[in-house]
Amino acid sequence: MQSASIFRSKVLARERISFETRHKDRMGLIFISPWLIGLLLFNLAPILISLILSFTDFHLLTPEQAQFTGISNYTAILRDMDAGKTFWQTIRLGLMVVPLQIIASVFFAGLLNDQRLLMKNTMRTLFFLPSIIPAFSAALMWQGYVNPATGWLNRILLNPLGLGWLNHFSSRGASESLFILSSLWTIGPSILIMLGAMQGIQPEIYEAARMDGAEALTRFFKITLPLITSAVFFILILNLTAVLGGAILLDRGNTFRFTFSSYDSYVNAVLFRLFNLGYASSLAWVFFVFAMTVVLILFVTSKHWVYYPDREA
């Protein structure tokens, strides 16, 4: 009985959505045509060209001498120690940065969405603020901040706690932990997305849970978290793409010398110092295939843990 009514409402909804579309497929195509043209010009064509380039020894200064070299670029990558090293470095940092960013943005969004918070908009803006600082300036700022002798990290936080020894110029993980720490400064948009998801949860659900005597923590883990998994998934994908060198939700202008991915800097070095477009293309393609595989796996597994409110309606 119930399923029949759900079915009926679904049919109705579908009819409503397509209230005029039956014969007007073309209208939709016209609307999205700018993007279709851009897709062709700025995505598909370049991807194809770089695939072709990756099988050549194309050099920027001597394009006329370019020849097909088969898979020799790809076999060269297998022997290339720098490529392997920077590849793993990028992945290792990604594995540390992305979970941290997700946990922090859920946590911050939870705080900023709390009823008890005063001056909500101002507080949210202040938490967003670091995300608009140019990447290069932010990096320099952090360098000064963590300087063991004069920076504030030691003088305000670590030394009073007797933990000054944690942060040395010479300590091996120092620059890496700096990088991981400063990745928390890019999560402004992620916080906003989490906030958007949390605000979409009906207050009645919390009310009911409170009536049943659920504690704040229980409410968070049993209600909030399961209901915002689609936002978590979106953030996971976006932050992962950012680490892997794709689109960044709020790009703050990374340079070629200073990128968050060491693999990117290696590709850029091959490109701008050696002008070896062929080899750079094959490096890029290896990573492209890797990144797409990871994302595809995530999308496939997402069925089991991501809740989409719009699919249920």
Partner: peptide, 20 residues
Amino acid sequence: YVLIATILIPDKVTFIPKFF
């Protein structure tokens, strides 16, 4: 889905031909 996929394309793979 293609639109979403374009978000995920690493910049470097399209960047080289565009630069050239």
